[in-house]
């Protein structure tokens, strides 16, 4: 069974006067340890697809099975639990709590899954070390650079050992040099066995992925395997 199984998913928004078809019949499977980029111009439905995959939203119709669970059957709390345990989010704007330390930011998903304080601290420290921020744990977001903030966010996404890491334009708010570092980090995570789904509209960011799915008008326009994914560290 694939990790993600999406079949004929439709998502419609009722905007009062008109119905907006954000997704009109999308089907795709994603296997474990894939590195997939979802691309498309704005309005193509890629954000909606990401929200559906991330269990932030449920499809209007169609089937979405995530780790063999039918997401359409789940209520709010069950969705929250899936997001908590199986999905790691990385946002374009980092979305860190501004007044909390890096460590507490990374601990947050563990707080909601009820892990003891002792374990929480250990796991969060581990995650921060793994993204190269072992010496920045007690810093607050405003004491960190953009790239460091995104690393904290990635550590937060990793801390619960999720089934997928869902990165929405992770380099959108970073300069190109820092962006490359973050992409490299994602490549490393992929090599360690993580499943990564990247949402972007930039070709050179998507070029890191092993498979690119292009959306247009709420439908899949193309779904291709990348012959040679870009790896900066090895290219240099």
């Amino acid at each position: 069974m694939p990790l993600i199984h999406i079949k004929d998913v439709v998502k419609t928004y009722d905007m009062g006067a008109e119905l907006v078809h954000a997704l009109s019949g999308v089907s795709l499977d994603i296997e474990e340890n894939e590195y997939v980029a979802i691309m498309g111009p704005s309005g193509s439905g890629k954000s909606t697809l990401m929200n559906v995959i991330g269990c932030l939203d449920t499809p209007t119709s169609g089937l979405y099975e995530f780790t063999d669970q039918n997401v359409g059957d789940l209520d709010d709390n069950e969705l929250a639990e899936i997001r908590n345990r199986k999905i790691g989010f990385v946002f374009q704007t980092f979305n860190l709590l501004p007044r909390s330390t890096a460590l507490h930011n990374v601990e947050l998903p563990l707080i909601y899954s009820g892990v003891t304080a002792q374990q929480r601290r250990e796991k969060a420290e581990q995650a921060l070390v793994s993204v190269g921020l072992g010496d920045r744990m007690t810093h607050k977001p405003n004491e960190l650079s953009g790239g460091q903030r995104q690393r904290v966010a990635i550590a937060r996404a990793l801390v619960n050992d999720p089934s997928i890491i869902l990165a929405d334009e992770p380099t959108g708010n970073l300069d190109s040099k820092t962006g490359i570092e973050i992409m490299q980090l994602l490549v490393d995570l992929h090599e360690k066995g993580n499943t990564i789904i990247l949402v972007t509209h930039e070709e050179d960011i998507a070029a890191h992925a092993h498979r690119i799915i292009r959306l247009f008008d709420g439908k899949i326009a193309s779904d291709e395997v990348v012959a040679e994914p870009l790896i900066y560290a090895k290219a240099e």
Partner: peptide
């Protein structure tokens, strides 16, 4: 609002 969204994405339930 955004913090609430983030917390929810990270798995905060309504109750929390």
């Amino acid at each position: 609002t955004k913090e609430i969204g983030t917390r929810k994405a990270l798995g905060a339930k309504r109750r929390s």
